[in-house]
Design a protein around this nucleic acid. Structure first.
Lengths: 239, 239
DNA sequence: CCGGTACTCTATCCTATGTTAGAGTGATGG
DNA sequence: CCATCACTCTAACATAGGATAGAGTACCGG
């Protein structure tokens, strides 16, 4: 499944066969990382960029009071920290949520890719911008939607993002989150997350049990939370 | 003051004299835009990227219920929408808050810059990543801080960002926001924004009157809202 | 100088979400 | 098989912030 990366970057359009080869080259050396471990932490100056091949990774910040906030989720095919190649210092940490397979790519390699492979450079650029678009949507969600729609929105987003990499079957998929993780993503307390989960269950909008998400009626769920997928910038399948 | 751009991009490090020349070339044709006008709107496929030379611009989304949320603020020296050069479709709008001077740069020019001027490409890359870092901080703020700290944090951020482009004098600066704008940025109601403004005033943390912000004690304000400026990725002045 | 418009401010009441605390439940390892 | 641990769920109470509605104030154009 090393082609996860290629499948993803192809969405940016216009990669050649040669580019594919280069990317395969780059993602040869993968490595297993256990769950709940930091890949890089704040104020590090790490030397490698990470790419997720399997598992879930999150980007988070710890506030002074010790409160953790998760600002992004990385699923297979996503880069964790392209920043590292450009900015000097991390302003947040990145940790695995599950046991993961990741590829480590050195800054040097990224610089080489961007300097000598214009199509790949473009695709990487594209990937960052999509990440930013997602971040923006999360911001809007937090600012303007009530808790239960926020959660519904998150599960809609994951449905689409995971299906791109083949991790959705029959509108259901597996996530590693505890309710505490959800709280840290949605800016809620665990207690309230629980209330919301109950509520969505009772409305039969989402069935969440033991790390497994089942969506009985996709369309209804999307309507419920005004989910508009344009921000994910998915491309039409073919092409 | 066309050098605003150069001053800003220089922070990414390593621009040569030739790069400066190229940038000056690019930002020659500027244009005046009145206040409260969209530069690009959602679902457009605009042909130009905008760079702010003077004035305030914001990036915003309108939720289905008509509620506006501002996800970013662009001040002189900032790009509004580098996305446009890469992504196909806007997922949000960009509008002026004041009358502004902007430079329009075509997609083609951006592509040329990134293909043929590696240091500039790097600097543009850098600028986007800083924007993303700011967005992330806004997210954390919304999720984890109470209203008054959120507002304090915003004014701390502006203090630093505006001082980079020489718009701060004696810890005070001018912003064009109404309390309604603030509400749209902070995810609050205008009524509550007013309460918070009163409160910060009464604590002598921020004096906000008629679009003018005065910060009596910078250090105290930063402590108050746990402001940690690392996310702005400012570089040491010289170099 | 007047009227309109847009913004600020106040007051009252209401609700979503936070807080604390503790009781269920299910997996895991020795 | 038991003890432990981590997670889920409940309940009672507290509060930050929302909603509505209207009065005060400043600015702007004619």
């Amino acid at each position: 499944m090393f082609d996860t990366l290629i499948r993803k970057l192809s969405q940016a359009g216009g990669l050649t066969e040669a580019d594919h080869k280069t990317l395969r080259q780059v993602s040869l050396r993968s490595r297993q990382v256990p769950a709940r471990r930091d890949l890089t932490s704040e104020e590090d100056r790490p030397e490698n960029v990470h790419l997720v091949l399997s598992g879930f990774v999150c980007r988070y910040k710890i506030l002074p009071k010790g409160q953790r906030h998760i600002t992004a989720l990385m699923v297979p095919g996503d880069f964790c920290d392209l920043h590292v190649a450009i900015l000097d210092e991390m302003d947040h940490s990145i940790g695995t949520m599950t046991s993961c397979t990741v590829v480590e790519i050195s800054r040097a390699t990224i610089h080489d890719l961007t300097a000598n492979h214009p199509r790949i450079a473009h695709a990487l650029w594209w990937a960052t911008l999509v990440d930013e678009a997602v971040l923006r949507e999360w911001l809007v969600c937090l600012a303007g939607r009530e808790a239960s729609k926020r959660m519904a929105h998150l599960f809609c987003e994951l449905l689409l993002r995971l299906s791109v990499v083949g991790l959705v079957k029959d509108d259901s998929y597996t996530v590693p989150f505890t309710q505490i993780d959800l709280a840290d993503m949605l800016g809620l307390t665990p207690v309230h997350v629980n209330r919301v989960v109950q509520h969505l269950r009772s409305e039969n909008l989402i069935v969440l049990r033991r790390h497994h998400v089942q969506i009985p009626d996709k369309a209804r769920l999307m309507t419920y939370c005004d989910f508009i997928p344009n921000y994910l910038h998915r491309r039409p399948r073919v092409k």
